[in-house]
Design a protein around this nucleic acid. Structure first.
Lengths: 161, 161
DNA sequence: CCTGTCGGCGCAATATTCTTGCTAGAACCT
DNA sequence: AGGTTCTAGCAAGAATATTGCGCCGACAGG
């Protein structure tokens, strides 16, 4: 499952634009289409490439407001956690959900059209699961958002130029 | 630029899997391939669909650790903001970057392989731009991450079933 | 030094999917 | 009713993905 520099280049390209024809990718990384296609195929099988998706413009689908929701809790039992997790995951408005170290226990990124919709979401959430210490922070502006992970850290063999 | 229920269905599918053939999308939304293709095309022209990308598995590319970085600042001049924004954006490790309301001014989501790499990133960051009040929170677990925006809020005409 | 095996590359043929030109029907206005 | 516009659909053509096959270089064993 080791990746080399060519694989990394391919991933860099696919993270930007997954519609690019394999032939063109091959050309850019210095490979003909077949080996390039096989590498992509392998990375999909290996789960390096998880999937290909369409990225939408938030404002155009009425989902332009991001709210970060910090949750602190006293409940730390495994059962409660599981219930909390599944409950939260089912909300489409929750696009990211992390268990944190430190001060706060969970952090959610919630996407809604406006403050009113956030309030409605919030009510629906706490109706489903009791939460005591919740704090909401509104994003005024999304300065950067990318699905592209940094590839500087992928392991490549030494003899690989 | 109005979207109807069929468009919304198409977007739902494409947000999950952008490799699905247009013919199959058409079948699922009750349309033949041509009109379905034209709708997709139009949504791309209108910027509703921004692009199609490959989503990678973070752990497989050595980018499995997320750190949220909160920044407070006294500098609020337009020039400083612009410099800050462009500086931060250039770091591939920064995958999300928001200007916030309330207590903290900026929030970044940073992706790195481990704590050591985060420390290195942090040093590189503050070397480029002076920051006084910075606080880092580590995510222990990514419970949910999706690029799919909620489509419950898209405006659809009333007469549209 | 030779030889067999393995792995990755590339060409060429095939299969699938995308893209476009054209026709037709429904809704709407005049 | 006639005309206009919008959207669907068919079918042909173009582009792209996918596969089979042969080639070449690296490497290990004799």
């Amino acid at each position: 499952m080791a990746l080399d520099k060519i694989d990394r280049k391919i991933l860099t390209l696919l993270q930007k634009d997954a519609t690019m024809p394999v032939a063109e990718i091959g050309r850019k990384v210095g490979l003909s289409t077949t080996p390039c296609w096989r590498r992509i195929q392998k990375m999909e099988e290996d789960g390096v490439i998880k999937r290909r998706v369409a990225v939408l413009e938030p404002t155009k689908v009425n989902a332009g407001v991001t709210v970060f929701v910090s949750v602190k809790t006293n409940e730390h039992s495994d059962g409660w956690l599981r219930k909390f997790a599944t409950t939260v995951e089912d909300f489409n408005e929750v696009v990211e959900f992390y268990r944190m170290s430190g001060d706060i226990d969970y952090l959610l990124r919630v996407v809604v059209p406006d403050i009113a919709a956030y309030d409605a979401f919030y009510k629906r959430l706490i109706a489903k699961i009791a939460l005591t210490d919740v704090s909401s922070s509104f994003a005024m502006e999304q300065i950067k958002y990318t699905t592209a992970l940094p590839l500087e850290y992928v392991m490549v063999a030494d003899d690989d130029k």
